[in-house]
Amino acid sequence: MNAMISTATPSTAYNFAYLDEQTKRMIRRAILKAIAIPGYQVPFASREMPMPYGWGTGGVQVTAAILGANDRLKVIDQGADDTTNAVSIRKFFEKTSGVATTTLTADATIIQTRHRIPEKELTETQVLVYQVPIPEPLRFLEPRETETRVMHALEDYGLMHVKLYEDIATHGHIATTYAYPVKVEGRYVMDPSPTPKFDNPKMDDCAALQLFGAGREKRIYAVPPHTSVVSLDFEDHPFEATKFDHACALCAATHTYLDEVITDDAGGRMFVCSDTDHCEERRAEGHRGDLLGEAPAAIAGSAA
């Protein structure tokens, strides 16, 4: 998909950005509370949306509540703008709000994302909206909401440290690669949504406001700009972000998160940037990866 900025005409059958104004006000209140208590999960009266639960309804509601007519919206899934669900959500907002959309990270004022944080450093003028499936970092250790809320209230995170310690005892290292738990501003343990732990360091002291929406679980939480976000670890087993043995086959980047693409049935594979906009920008700047000329268009896009 080419990098582009486009505008659309809104559909008049629904209110701007689909939700009615009372609902938006309710969501904005929850967002304000979430910003005031970084990392705390604020319950909100999540609405049924015209896309299924688990497909980004929380992120869509947060975006709808903060979207203004002058915003430029970027939607990514797995780091890419042209993933089917990202296309679907972008079209939804084009249809219901008519705001300008973009694939350029630097041009966007609101970026809705599933599973990734863009590689390019975000700024004070941007808001990153995460789609969250399970907001509770303790959920798989304690299935009951009534219990986990008490644990958060008492700052009782022993169970999480035991889990991480057991990982080390069993595997020699912490065996959590995504949805890696973080502590926000020294208080709440938070699930960064299932972003790979590679992205965790980007959350710390991030200039952009980070909002997290979980529609099915009816929770909103936030990390305000320039807030401390620390990945949980131990002194003798410090947190380590995932590193790749490869450079991007298209843009030769060595600092980005890579997707593994299987190219044939004989073990052939290539590694390419997950953040397609970042990769295209680097190629436009003249960076060339090993396989740039031979990669299929479905992977390389037309910017190759």
């Binding site: 049924e48 299924p52 639960y53 688990g54 497909w55 309804t57 899934d77 797995q78 780091g79 993933t83 089917t84 669900n85 599933r114 599973h115 990734r116 499936p133 065996a175 690669t177 995504y178 949805a179 299932p194 972003t195 790979p196 732990k197 590679f198 099915r216 995932t242 790749f244 998160y257 890579l258 997707d259 593994e260 997950s274």
Partner: peptide, 25 residues
Amino acid sequence: NVQATGFVEHLKLPHYVDFQAELAL
């Protein structure tokens, strides 16, 4: 069932970023 079917069926959505992290591990 609207919540349940959404979340069960969301497993159809791409998860390759997280799967890549698991592959590496």
